[in-house]
Computed example of a mutant assay.
Amino acid sequence: MEISVLFGASFLMLIWGIYNYLGFRKEKREVKKKFEQLFRRKNERKSFIAKIGDRFDQTEYAGEFKKKLMYANIALLPSEFFAILLFSAFTLTILLFGFFSVPVLYSIVISSVICLFVYWMIFLVRRNKYIDKLNNQLSEVCRLLGNGTKAGMTIIQGLEVVAAEIDSPARGEFKTLTQNIRLGVDFERALKEMEKRVPTREYKLFISALLIQKRAGGNLTKVLHEMAHTLEERKILRQTIKTATAEQRFISYILPAMPIFLLFMLNSIMDGFLELIFTVPGAILMIIFIIGMAIALLLVRAVTNIKV
């Protein structure tokens, strides 16, 4: 019992240390980015692992994967994401072997499968987080632009104020828009390109309002403030629905994990219990369990994914 408590405390301390290290890495990266122009050094030495990560981040696959991380709203480099995934698999392997008495080969296989499942779930659950965050910021964008036009600014000047004041990720999109306009791209064409980058109903409505005002005129300030009010109400409604369905979503994640945890606990109590899974009847039952779990997750997600 004492060994189990010590092992659990050590594992929690390891997780706490990893969390603090990642926070330190983030702060270090921000400070370095802020002052690198003032204290730039030539031939600065870097660690061997960092060089491998930088080289990987420059590959074509990493470039495509970076877009995937961006749309999932995960603020990590591809090398950092895969490093965390590999480290999690390694830690899980040690945990299964040391705490639950699972054989080494089985621990490696189970850890790999769990990490692949987590990888799939991350991008399934967070595949629209970037777009959702942009939609949530649109009400603030409309309010800032409306206040700018009310103060006598032109639309382009108001968009520059939005690009300077709004937080990420909307800041990047509006900076791209204003930079294109400064480089001589037609205003309508720049807005159409933005509509292609953010193909949502909210942004289509916002861009249509700007184009109509540019062509025909009208009280743009009133339209933008009304749009901001409507978008705020939609945001509140979406949050209410998300809160109401939170219990069902979390139960759907917890229930499949409970039999797996009990399986490992029984294996630590009864030697060789896990080997029953690798028999023909055990493999059939495991396949049925995995299929049923996947169907349950998809059904719960379909029921709780209420579009407003």
Rank of each mutant, 00 (worst) to 15 (best):
L276H: 08
V141D: 03
L262S: 08
R171V: 07
I290R: 12
I166Q: 00
L85S: 08
G272L: 01
A62W: 03
S208E: 02
M121Q: 13
V198C: 08
V198E: 08
R25Y: 08
S88L: 08
T149Q: 13
L220I: 00
I251G: 02
W16F: 15
L69T: 07
G184Q: 05
T304L: 02
T279R: 11
M270S: 15
I155K: 00
F90V: 15
F35I: 00
I3S: 02
F264G: 04
I287C: 15
R40V: 10
T176W: 14
N128R: 13
V300C: 05
G184Y: 04
A83W: 10
Y253T: 01
G53H: 04
L224R: 06
L12E: 02
I212F: 04
R197N: 07
L177N: 03
G292D: 11
L69Q: 03
S112Q: 09
S268I: 03
E44I: 04
S88R: 12
L38W: 08
Y71N: 09
E247L: 06
S208K: 07
R215W: 11
K214V: 02
A244Q: 10
F174V: 00
S101I: 09
L85Y: 02
M258G: 00
F39T: 06
Q58L: 09
A89M: 14
V113T: 12
F97Q: 13
N180T: 10
L12K: 02
R127N: 13
L255Y: 15
K33V: 04
A62I: 07
L237W: 08
S10W: 09
K34Y: 11
Y203G: 02
I306E: 09
V109F: 14
F81L: 07
R182H: 08
I295F: 14
T154L: 00
E30A: 13
Q58N: 12
F24G: 14
K26C: 00
L76T: 07
P256S: 12
E202T: 12
G152Q: 01
M258L: 15
F289K: 00
R55F: 09
A209D: 01
V303W: 15
S139N: 08
D186N: 11
F48R: 03
L69N: 06
S88V: 06
I131C: 01
L205A: 15
L231H: 06
L255S: 07
I156Q: 11
A72L: 11
Y19T: 01
G53F: 06
S252D: 05
A72E: 12
E247C: 10
L96Q: 02
L274N: 06
L12C: 07
I18R: 02
E233K: 13
N136G: 06
L14V: 15
A244L: 13
M70K: 12
T178Q: 10
V303C: 03
S101N: 14
E275R: 04
L191G: 00
K51A: 11
Y21W: 10
T91G: 14
I3Y: 12
L6H: 11
K150I: 02
D186T: 03
K33H: 07
L276M: 12
K175R: 10
